[in-house]
Computed example of a mutant assay.
Amino acid sequence: MIDTLLDSLSSLFEGVPPWQATALLVGFSLGLAVVLEVVVLRTLLRYTGRTETEYDNILVQELRAPIVVTAALAGVYVLTQLTAVNENVLLTPDQLDTFFGKPSLSIIVVAWAFASNRVVNRFVEEVKDKGSRFDFAPVFSNVWTLIVFVGTIGILLSLWEYSISPLLGAAGVAGIAVGFAARDTVANFFGGIALYFDDTYKLGDYIELDTGEAGTVVKVGVRSTTLMMRDEVLVTVPNASLNATRVINQSAPQRRKRLKVPIGVAYGTDVDAFEELVLEIADEESLVLDSPRPRMRFRAFGDSALEYELLCWVASPIREKKAQHRLNRAMYKELTAADVEIPFPQREVTLQPANAEGGHDDAASATSIADGASAIGSERRSA
């Protein structure tokens, strides 16, 4: 397509003196650059300056320079490729390409590379200032800068017809060496990227690990994630470990947490009155949410009690333990005041002292004790 366009332009300038063709092409390029700068780009800047988002304004601001430079130097490059214009010029086509064509393309490549790097860096700064989920944004900015730099060097070398194969080989060897030397760091880095794109958690979430550790996410870095435990101790966990284990996010998809409070009552208790009393206690607790409503669930017939669970919701996982403490205290007080028995395991041990013939006396004394420790003490006293 480019060759066809150049052939068409060459046919237009057949019979035109070289200086006139040069003046026309260069003048057209400069005029186009001025029109783009004065009319198009400034109009776009005024429009984007009134929009709510800043991203479109950043895009126009940073692409302004490469667009103008491309328009201004396009005529110079095209001029070096037109045989009809350059056939009467003292310089050869290779010399024209070397002194004018390749330098103009090189300037265009550098201008676009610089602008693309600036666009991404400014986007990153904009996202970071508005509170991103993670602080990975600066890392992406640095990686993008490295990619743009290496890509620009490769394009320029190819443009000037230098072989980049030795450089690629050296880069491959260096990459393998760095990968082996810093495999843990690399694993943590890519583990963090996976956590970012999977949206496993974000700052402020309360998460629980397979190891039983649970805390609030206060920092997610390139290498590790920092958790604030309930006792205000910071725990740093490598991202590679988090990416390879199960993470329970108790703050997602909603921050509220369901609370399960087990309680047992004695057999023979009026279960209707008991359930109503416990629900009243849950309704009066300020940490318990009104919606969803608290409810009682009869789970099982236990060995010594009817096993119930109070199901209710709290606004945040970090309020779970405090709410359970308050509910347990309130239920104990109210059930005791209402003469509702909360049973506990009891053990009955019968001690039979041995007679003179090595047997046991039929008239055995029975002692009821509350736990195993009291039973051992009674046995020692009988001895």
Results as ranks from 00 to 15, higher is better:
G15P: 08
P17I: 03
T22I: 13
A23N: 07
L25R: 02
F28C: 10
G31N: 07
L32Y: 06
L36I: 06
E37L: 11
R42G: 01
L45N: 01
E52W: 10
E54G: 14
N57V: 01
V60N: 05
A71W: 01
G75R: 02
V76C: 08
V78A: 04
T80R: 04
N86E: 10
L90Y: 04
Q95D: 03
Q95F: 06
I108N: 01
W112E: 06
V120N: 00
R122G: 00
E125G: 15
D129E: 06
S141E: 05
I147R: 01
T152L: 14
I153G: 13
I155T: 12
L156R: 13
I164H: 06
F180H: 05
T185C: 01
G192P: 04
I193P: 01
D198L: 01
T200I: 09
Y201T: 12
L209H: 14
T216H: 07
S224D: 09
T226H: 07
N239W: 03
L242A: 03
N243L: 07
A244E: 13
A252D: 00
P253V: 03
I263W: 09
I263E: 05
A266R: 11
G268T: 09
D270K: 15
F274A: 12
L277E: 04
L277I: 04
E285S: 15
S286K: 09
V288I: 10
S291E: 10
R295L: 05
F298S: 09
A300Y: 02
G302W: 04
A305M: 08
E307H: 11
Y308M: 07
A315N: 02
L327E: 03
N328V: 12
A337E: 12
V340H: 00
I342K: 07
P343H: 10
F344P: 03
F344S: 13
P345D: 08
R347I: 10
H360G: 05
S374Q: 12
R380Q: 11
R381C: 12
S382V: 02
